[in-house]
Write a protein that binds this DNA or RNA. Sequence first.
DNA 1: TCGCCATGCAGAAACGTGCCTGTCAACGTG
DNA 2: CACGTTGACAGGCACGTTTCTGCATGGCGA
Lengths: 342, 342
Amino acid sequence: MAAAAGVSITTVSDALNGKGRLPDATRRHVREVAERLGYRPSAAARTLRTGKSGLIGLTVTTYGNEPFTFTEFAYFAEMARAATSAALARGYALVILPATSRHDVWSNVALDGTVVIDPSDQDPVVTELVRQGLPVVSDGRPAGTLPVTAWVDNDHRAAVLDLLDHLAAAGARRIGLLTGNTTDTYTRLSTAAYLHWCERVGQDPVYESYPAHDPCAGAVAADRLLARPDRPDAVYGLFDPNGTDLLAAARRYGLRVPEDLLLVCCSESTVYAATEPPITTLSLKPRRIGTAVVQLLIDAIEGVEHDGPVEQVIPTELIVRTSSQRRPPRTTVSAPRSPSRD
Amino acid sequence: MAAAAGVSITTVSDALNGKGRLPDATRRHVREVAERLGYRPSAAARTLRTGKSGLIGLTVTTYGNEPFTFTEFAYFAEMARAATSAALARGYALVILPATSRHDVWSNVALDGTVVIDPSDQDPVVTELVRQGLPVVSDGRPAGTLPVTAWVDNDHRAAVLDLLDHLAAAGARRIGLLTGNTTDTYTRLSTAAYLHWCERVGQDPVYESYPAHDPCAGAVAADRLLARPDRPDAVYGLFDPNGTDLLAAARRYGLRVPEDLLLVCCSESTVYAATEPPITTLSLKPRRIGTAVVQLLIDAIEGVEHDGPVEQVIPTELIVRTSSQRRPPRTTVSAPRSPSRD
DNA sequence: TCGCCATGCAGAAACGTGCCTGTCAACGTG
DNA sequence: CACGTTGACAGGCACGTTTCTGCATGGCGA
């Protein structure tokens, strides 16, 4: 390449990177020759020299061999999409990596930093990355004293309390919970908030838990919950498929929604706007979370100082639909709603 | 590192990579010291030296700034997940890259090869990658003479013809189509198959098309289709949200499904098993496609010879549910179905 | 005319591997 | 004892950048 343009390697580098003291004529000449030859500088060599790869990792916890968390899939998909977008907008590419895998993919990839989803206490991946001096930003408030660079999360406790109040205001007398038996922070915090709320209003907790990564177990658990002798007259489901599962279970037991059973479910899916009846959902705003996480990470990589805190709490949104309104509004043909763009 | 172990750089490299002629004692010693120091070989240097990065790209066409195709989102999410899994299982990591972006992310990432989703004819990304000598495997039969290394696709024509026959057998007299007005191969082939079928059976085509990347336009188009004077008594929707949109539209017009209107929709979503009524779906088997695409790509990267063709056709699956059966079976409480694992 | 500075470019080191070649000792073997 | 053979490592180059330093050249003021 340098030979083809009749200049030195240095001049090529300077011309393409806009550095050095070169007259515009030389710069143009070099660029033109590069264009003609289809020359692309080697990313590997650049990374080796500069120490920056332009790659950030997105680490997901694994159930079995599947690299993604299955249950929060719509959440995760939206979050990953937003993260990818945000990374690309700042010139970075995003690599999805599993927390554990047979091959040691980690050492094959040069990363500038990593996003970690819901890290466990003493997470070995995080501690290793921090030891290497890489910035780590977590989606989900880190448990214990995990030394992450920054984190982003919802206020799950407030969201659940608010939602339960909403159900109570709609006339619910006994609110049930469909939850997971995993130990992740989201499930723990949400369940704890539910129990706290029950204690506060003096209601006996009514809940069923199931392995949230098993797509079949949810329907069974929903059935179990509505089959109980102390059947709730309102249910909150923590996971995305719970809404349709609960609706199906309600139909099997001849329960009308919302007359006999109020329903809310945590989901990012738009299908709940078109179910019969439409189901009220709690959105965790995964797009905002994915964007925020990547922004914080890249800021840390590029040494941008944050005078503010390195914690960000993203507000949740309760999208109220027919399923949680005891006195449903007159149904009209409503115009399709524009999706929110955040 | 070499100094700490008291050996040469060569010995370290050989010890860690299992090469050279070293006694087990030395090998163990080196590995132990590496472990103690937390030493990780530089991925960038290895890539520079060997020319292999262990990274494969997944290129998605973009609508506006969003890096993913919106409409086929469930399809894409599943496909990307399977591709990531398959790559990781063979020691590769997967990077999601947009076909076009402001920053030139492409030249910042050293790729061993790329998967391209539904490339257009004369796709500039593909031709550039091929020029660089990188293997390219496409999801979707490449249009024209695009020089891809291999490709994987469904037989969209056969799938649509089969599905229309199914609807006709269920008693449909006039089948409508809800389709997109984009020029991608999937939409083109499916629409062409529909028109061909209509011609064969002597039915006037009844279809509405809309910009498939716009999540709102689908509901409007569904409404338009059912408002026509020549209202169809069966509809096939090409895109994932069409099922719920059509169901909602049918309710608005007081049409019972499946008594007054038969419904089939191409979707990977499991929610259609729990709608009222459950909707028959055509699955394109994105997991199998994602896996196959990555296997072919890595085979090409590693120089695995294929005696067979470098084209793979993945069979589709029509999941028949109540919405396309004129005489619905007695509804019973059915046990949750295990999801197929392919 | 001479020194001086700005301009325009080239040389060369360094990044950390992988791999090819070289060296040296120990070890049979005729 | 001379000599090939083998084991066990070390030396050194190359990969393709970036960047620091250095060397000409020419214009300009003193």
